[in-house]
């Protein structure tokens, strides 16, 4: 396992986000350390995706601070913010591939926009990225509408990794995949995280993912992170929701298989 350092690349303090009268996040604080895979869990509607979207700047916040790479999002200049956005990649739940571009053009899009590189290098790197996420080069000329769910996720991951980001945000990366496909995707995330030294911020419901790839898990409820820590800490927790989640009927199977894999 890659040792996570103590440097927090994302530092969220007392974050409040709301829509109308409702507060979805209410005084949330969390740290994400460099080189770790942090999994976020919580009941549906607990605000996991809202947190992700707020950190990457798609949703406005009411108060609180978000520091990414030691820079406060609110206190940065336009140029600093662009630099910040170049250093992370996002995998959206539905892939969010540009439907009018081919797979290869999708992966190349951030490179073409941000970098002055020869088109030969861009082509080679795009194909290399596609191969790294486990796709054959012929997929490059297909359009997103022609891809299966698993392939869409892989292409979206390749696009998220296009600029070799330091952080990747994954919004339910394995949802909609069959267990085998989800397992492969987990392994892929693990491998890429090791080879590229990524920090991974992952929103997920997949207990298998939590057991096999996450270094730490943060549990959200009532607009806050109620507890965070590695799997053993989750299994030992006495909080009713955490207990129901990690020691429920569905979870025991996942824990057993994970234990088998490790042993």
């Amino acid at each position: 396992m890659v040792r996570a350092s103590n440097e927090a690349v994302i530092k969220v303090r007392d974050l409040v986000v709301g829509f109308g009268d409702a507060k979805v996040l209410d005084g949330l604080s969390v740290d994400v350390f460099r080189g770790e895979i942090l999994g976020f869990v919580g009941a549906s509607g607990a605000g996991k995706s809202v947190l992700l979207r707020t950190i990457i700047g798609l949703l406005p916040r009411r108060s609180g601070t978000i520091e990414v790479f030691g820079l406060d999002r609110n206190a940065t200049s336009e140029a600093e913010r662009e630099g910040m956005e170049r250093r992370w990649g996002v995998l959206f739940q539905q892939g969010a591939l540009f439907s009018s571009l081919t797979v290869r053009q999708n992966v190349q899009f951030p490179m073409r926009e941000y970098l002055k590189l020869s088109s030969r290098l861009i082509d080679e790197i795009a194909l290399a990225k596609l191969e790294m996420v486990g796709l054959s080069p012929d997929v490059g000329d297909k359009y997103p509408a022609e891809l299966s769910g698993g392939m869409t996720k892989r292409v979206a991951l390749a696009r998220a990794l296009a600029l070799d980001p330091e952080i990747v945000f994954l919004d339910e990366p394995t949802s909609g995949l069959d267990p085998i496909g989800a397992g492969e995707f987990d392994d892929l995330i693990r491998t890429l995280q090791r080879t590229l030294g990524l920090t991974v911020f992952m929103v997920t419901h997949d207990l298998d993912s939590l057991h096999t790839v996450c270094d730490r898990i943060a549990v959200m409820a009532d607009g806050k992170v109620i507890t965070a820590g590695p799997i053993p800490a989750m299994l030992a927790s006495e909080h009713p929701w955490v207990k129901a989640y990690f020691r429920g009927k569905r979870s025991r199977v996942a824990a057993a298989t994970a234990a088998q894999n490790i042993g």
Binding site: E124, L127, E131, M132, P137, R194, T195
Partner: peptide, 18 residues
């Protein structure tokens, strides 16, 4: 050492000419 995996990965890709 920590870059070995990445270089091996690069070594493996783009082997087949389109």
């Amino acid at each position: 050492d920590h870059y070995r995996g990445l270089v091996e990965e690069a070594h493996a890709v783009n082997r087949r000419a389109l």
